[in-house]
């Protein structure tokens, strides 16, 4: 039987450790935003990995940077080829070291922010949208971010307050059926966060502000 879950709940280092300590032969598949990664275990060692366009150790290092994504572990699946000869413990150590010293490129910044936002109770999903409202990064692939015209909404919000304020709106909270969305600007971009309906915006906004401000 396959083990299925999300990296939000079990981190990749734990999954690698578990499979290696159990001397498993298995295939781990990770899917995030339509992109797939594979890690193969053979008799308790990591023997092959792919994360397009990376293969081998580099693929593992890139996969270690994911903070969420669906995964599936299938037992007794052998690797098509062996590309990794480093022991699993050294591979993990090197991967964590690389993560710690990774340059703060855009993706890394957003991964860190996603990680902080997703630890807030009630936060389900996060999107980062560019100044034109197109999704740049997201914790899940959903079309809603594209169809909801966030930039138009922000513009209307800003203009409607003119009798009282000419400052930019800080947070917009929308209740759409069972979904509550929070929209906020971030530098020249927008962050959109989906909450559980039961989560109240005023209680979660200070936490979101802290999570975003920590970058």
């Amino acid at each position: 039987m396959a083990l299925i879950g999300n990296l939000k709940d079990i981190k990749l280092p734990s999954l690698i450790q578990l499979n290696c300590m159990e001397h498993n032969t298995a295939k781990l598949t990770i899917e995030r935003a339509g992109r797939f990664g594979f890690v193969y275990f053979e008799n308790g060692q990591v023997s092959h990995a792919e994360f397009d366009p990376y293969i081998g150790e580099e693929a593992v290092y890139k996969l270690l940077g994911l903070v969420d994504g669906r995964f599936k572990v299938e037992s007794d699946v052998r690797p098509p080829v062996r590309t990794i000869h480093t022991s699993w413990s050294n591979l993990l150590l090197e991967g964590m070291h690389k993560l710690d010293h990774a340059q703060d490129d855009g993706e890394n910044i957003y991964n860190k922010m996603f990680e902080r936002l997703l630890t807030i109770r009630g936060v389900n999903m996060v999107w980062v949208l560019d100044a034109e409202g197109q999704t740049i990064f997201s914790t899940d692939q959903k079309e809603m971010a594209q169809t909801l015209n966030v930039v138009f909404i922000a513009l209307q919000a800003e203009r409607l307050a003119r009798p009282f304020s000419r400052q930019p709106v800080r947070f917009i909270s929308l209740l759409l059926g069972d979904r509550r969305l929070i929209i906020t600007s971030y530098h020249h971009e927008y962050i959109m966060i989906e909450l559980d309906k039961k989560t109240k915006s005023d209680t979660v906004i200070p936490l979101i502000r802290r999570a975003i401000g920590k970058i």
């Binding site: 909404i153 709106v169 909270s173 929308l174 209740l175 979904r179």
Partner: peptide, 27 residues
């Protein structure tokens, strides 16, 4: 009208907007 335009954007969606909260520093 500006609030209703935001509502109109979601009108054809499965779940149209029923509530909007807007936060400024002093508003």
């Amino acid at each position: 009208i500006r609030l209703l335009r935001i509502h109109a954007l979601t009108w054809e969606a499965e779940n149209p907007l029923t509530e909007i909260e807007l936060y400024w520093k002093n508003l």
